[in-house]
Design a protein around this nucleic acid. Structure first.
Lengths: 220, 220
DNA sequence: CGTACTTTTGAATCGCATCAAATCTGGTGG
DNA sequence: CCACCAGATTTGATGCGATTCAAAAGTACG
């Protein structure tokens, strides 16, 4: 069950799995605080954890909201945490002792390569999300999302539209209106949780359309 | 000179360094196209490279703008590229043969650990940037930036304000006005490229202020 | 000295957030 | 099975804030 939600967990070697702990936490609980020594790597199985700091006026500066997957991976290299971790809603967490995790990465080459792959994928995904959030139009963000997260111009949403809106950095009202409008314009077709970009059949269809500057550089 | 711009490069083992190639490319040139086999890992030393796809109407979907550092790391795991790479302004690139890079990661433990650290740091940074871009107010983004990228509520900008604005997902006019306003309100102090958040002296000053729920969970 | 770029300020416009409220949905318990 | 509730979905009206267009002043560099 855990493994379904996080395919990566299937690759965790037995030695590490044995020392991993499961923790149920309630909303509002603190996982760690700034300055605390780093002794574990955490993975959110369900629920939400927030990494945050506080600005001078007490406002929360959210560094990361994690709803599934590892968080604060970068802390693995530091002695102490540079932010607080607060459980935002009742959550199930996996805790891996840092040293055991390090050893597993060191000794177990396949595990290591899966981990590096995971990090690299995460980087790719986050970069695309940053570019998307830099777009000012709601429609632009929706189309960007389908193009970058979907396949061949289509996507199946695995979440409610409301939380999709939040991921897009939009109010849910704005998203509903934008989808309706794009549907009416024929730019995209809505079919429940499945969304198609109109006029897009195959991923590679317009590779050849691209402008000039297509010298013999395509492969280096 | 290269190493100054990318401290990571200092850790590249000799064997890999020898097979790395340097490439100067002009604006508009194509580095690779969708579907091309992945044979190199690239690092931008100067200039800008964009990873992009095209939506049905020919609009560019920018997946990543890279101005320094590695890009398309995630492609290292795939056979073929899933996007185009276009040089957006005259750039200097480093090209590492993929196989040699893999071997270096496999054989050279210190190099490997530096590389994983680099990926993890990148993830942290990108997650913070996503949270920042999700904020709707210009002032919120500025403060978030100083809190997350700076140290103890202060930061020294290493770029023009105009490009900072772009990183914040704002028009430069909006940034100028916001800075002026925050300065007038006394929220922050401007001193050339150095910016201070008012009333913030030490990083850890308000760790103890935080609410309840601070049970003995701080360390797990 | 001139050119290119950044910085700065102004004015007008537009899109999205926000507030409000109605409908629809799935799930719970009587 | 139905009443009921929490949450998601949908539509409307309003206001604010950021974008945009425009233009001037400052700055770095050859």
């Amino acid at each position: 069950m855990l493994i379904e939600s996080q395919p990566f967990l299937a690759h965790i070697p037995p030695g590490l799995r044995e020392v991993a702990k499961c923790r149920n936490m309630e909303a509002g609980e603190t996982l760690f605080r700034i300055g605390a020594p780093v002794r574990n790597l955490f993975c959110v199985v369900s629920g939400e954890v927030q990494l945050l700091r506080h600005d001078p006026r007490g406002t929360r500066i959210i560094l990361q909201r994690s709803r599934g997957g590892f968080f604060a991976e970068a802390s693995a290299g530091s002695k102490a945490y540079h932010c607080d971790a607060i459980v935002n809603e009742a959550s199930l967490l996996l805790c891996f002792p840092l040293e055991a995790f390090r050893v597993a990465l060191e000794k177990d080459a396949p595990f290591r390569s899966v981990w590096m792959e995971l990090l690299a994928k995460e980087v790719r995904k986050l970069r695309a999300q940053c570019e998307r959030l830099s777009l000012h139009g709601a429609a632009d963000r929706v189309i960007h999302y389908i193009e970058s997260e979907g396949t061949g111009g289509a996507i199946t949403l695995s979440q409610s539209r409301k939380s999709w809106a939040s991921e897009l950095g939009l109010s849910h009202e704005a998203l509903y209106r934008t989808l309706k409008q794009l549907g009416a314009q024929g730019v995209l077709h809505l079919d429940g949780h499945r969304i198609f970009l109109a006029g897009k059949k195959r991923e590679s269809s317009n590779v050849c359309f691209t402008p000039a500057s297509c010298r013999s550089n395509s492969d280096v």
